[in-house]
Every structure is written in C-alpha cells, then in structure tokens.
C-alpha cells in the first residue's frame, strides 16, 4: 500500500481547489514537491469529466411530479386556477378570425343583435314621441 505524505495530499488538494475554482487556498501549496503524474491527470480529468444535464422532457416531468406530490399547482402551492367569472366571456372573442365572422349565426349573437335592434327602435320611438309633444 502506498503511504501518502500528508503534506503531499494537502498540496494536491490545494492544486485541485485552484484548478476547479472550489475555494481560494489560504497559502500557496508547495506544488513543486508534488509528483507531476497526478497533477497532469487532474488537468485531463478536469476537461474529461463533464457535467451532464438531463433532457428537458425528463426535467419538466419530474418537476410536475414534485408539484403533484404536495398538490402544488404550476404557480406554486398557493397558486390555484380561478375560473374567470362568467366563463363564457372567456370564449366571447375567438382567436380564429373565421370563427369570429361566423359568430352572427350563433344563438347568443342573434340574441345580442335582437337586443341592439330593439334598443335602437326604442330610442327612435322616444325621440319621435318627444318631437311630436307640444313645447
């Protein structure tokens, strides 16, 4: 078994801290005392041992699972989906222009149109009535 000198392992540790940017050593380690082989290997491993990122799909799936674990919604535990009052209003203006053009055929649209026509008729009748009234 190799008996390491404590000062050698400390010096190597200091070198690795500097190489990896883990910490700023208090004092410069006496690297000159070190065997070159571990130092050169450390340089190689620093380039070769890269960090991998999981796929975006996996990351998001697990994020959703963690939220579900505590009944947490997408915006956090205290966030919850509140239905827009009068949910039909949310669909009042469809995103699709073709659908918008056809809205006049919908029952709701016909009622709205009928109400508008009745209102205009009432205003005109009121104005006519006012005009006929003697001053």
């Amino acid at each position: 078994m190799i008996a390491e000198d404590a000062s050698e392992t400390i010096a190597l540790d200091g070198h690795l801290d500097r190489l990896l940017g883990v910490a700023t050593p208090v004092a410069a380690a006496p690297e000159a005392l070190l065997d070159r082989a571990p130092l050169e290997t450390a340089d190689i491993l620093q380039r070769v041992l890269i960090r991998f990122h999981p796929s975006f799909r996996f990351e998001e799936r697990l994020a959703a699972r963690l939220r579900a674990e505590h009944g947490v919604g997408p915006g956090g535990m205290r966030a919850r989906v509140i239905p827009f009052r009068g949910g039909t209003y949310a669909r009042a203006v469809p995103a699709d222009p073709l659908e918008r053009r056809s809205r006049g055929l919908l029952v709701g649209g016909a009622i709205a149109s009928g109400v508008s026509i009745a209102s205009i008729g009432a205003v005109l009748a009121w104005r006519r009535h006012s005009a006929e009234r003697p001053a």
């Binding site: 960090r51 991998f52 990122h53 999981p54 990351e59 697990l62 994020a63 963690l66 939220r67 674990e69 505590h70 947490v72 919604g73 915006g75 956090g76 535990m77 205290r78 966030a79």
Partner: peptide, 18 residues
C-alpha cells in the same frame, strides 16, 4: 411552502443526474 422546493430542484437536478 413545498412549492418553493422547485428552486432547489432546478439548481441541483443536473448535479444529481450527472
């Protein structure tokens, strides 16, 4: 707030996965 765990998750997911 367990919902806040997501910050830690996002920070460490690549490290744990690696």
């Amino acid at each position: 707030d367990p919902g806040a765990f997501e910050t830690l998750y996002r920070k460490y997911v690549a490290q744990v996965y690696s």
